[in-house]
């Protein structure tokens, strides 16, 4: 006899998981198949699409640009976000602190379209021609709230009396930072920077409005898609996916190790 009260929930969960992952799985699978079309049955497997994607100078440039944007965004929004979070915990008035925190997180919920257009208008007003630099500034705005959020969570549980203990034992302010603060917050900082890199890698809207005639991977893929589905797009998407998964997993692991200590 079929036990419907068990089969139904299990079936539902399976459907949800399929819905979430089937499109991604399709892209990954077809990036390795010989057929140029998305068709069944699969005739054979090949790495040709990766070869043709990576040998395409347009795609190589776009990939390089994307990595530059991700690195810039990770480093700069990392440094800015960490510094800002330290300033934030030093604010004594609770209402001011929570207002500043909320204010710094707001860009995370402002529609990307608004941020993208606003930046484009601003850059034009100050006479900055569209390009990678503009896109990088946009990416920092997009990632900064997430860096602040991560760092703020870490610093709220940070025992600042350990810094006083270090000073008391003879450390200068710099030595206390080097020996105590930095080793303790390092996992969170790296985690936050990886998250910033991940957000930057697949950012499209803000990039598209500000990057001008340069290409990042998402912008290039968007352009290629308008001309029809080229199977090397599957390969690019899979590379991007692999990069993102690595970054997010690493970021999460660091965050968890941090929480355990």
């Amino acid at each position: 006899m079929v036990r419907w009260n068990r089969v139904l929930p299990a079936g539902f969960v399976t459907l949800v998981v399929l819905y979430l992952y089937a499109p991604i799985a399709v892209i990954v699978i077809f990036s390795f198949t010989t057929s140029p079309r998305l068709s069944m049955p699969i005739e054979g497997f090949t790495l040709d699409w990766y070869v043709s994607a990576l040998s395409n100078p347009l795609i190589a440039t776009a990939l390089r640009n994307s990595l530059v944007l991700a690195a810039t965004s990770a480093v700069l929004s990392g440094v800015m976000g960490v510094a800002f979070s330290f300033g934030l915990v030093a604010v004594r008035r609770a209402w001011l602190r929570s207002t500043l925190l909320a204010g710094s997180l707001l860009p995370a919920i402002v529609p990307l379209l608004v941020i993208g257009i606003a930046l484009a208008v601003l850059f034009r007003a100050v006479g900055m021609p569209q390009g990678l630099l503009n896109a990088a500034i946009g990416h920092m705005i997009v990632s900064l709230p997430f860096v602040v959020l991560t760092m703020n969570a870490r610093l709220e549980s940070f025992d600042f009396s350990t810094l006083e203990a270090a000073r008391d034992l003879g450390a200068s302010a710099w030595q206390a930072f080097r020996d105590i603060t930095f080793p303790l917050i390092r996992p969170s900082v790296i985690g936050a920077m990886l998250l910033a890199a991940a957000l930057s890698l697949d950012e499209f809207v803000v990039t598209w409005f500000n990057i001008g005639n340069q290409q990042s991977v998402p912008v290039l893929v968007w352009g290629l898609m308008r001309r029809g589905v080229d199977p090397s797009i599957n390969a690019i998407a899979t590379i991007l996916l692999a990069l993102l998964v690595c970054l997010v997993v690493a970021s999460n692991r660091l965050g968890r190790r941090n929480g355990a200590s």
Binding site: D159, S161, T162, E164, A165, A166, D168, G170, A171, S172
Partner: peptide
């Protein structure tokens, strides 16, 4: 004088040991 230039040492209420 700052704390690192004084001949005193403090035992904190909750230890303030360096966790790492």
């Amino acid at each position: 004088r700052p704390p690192d230039k004084r001949p005193t040492n403090l035992v904190f209420q909750r230890g303030a040991l360096f966790p790492h």
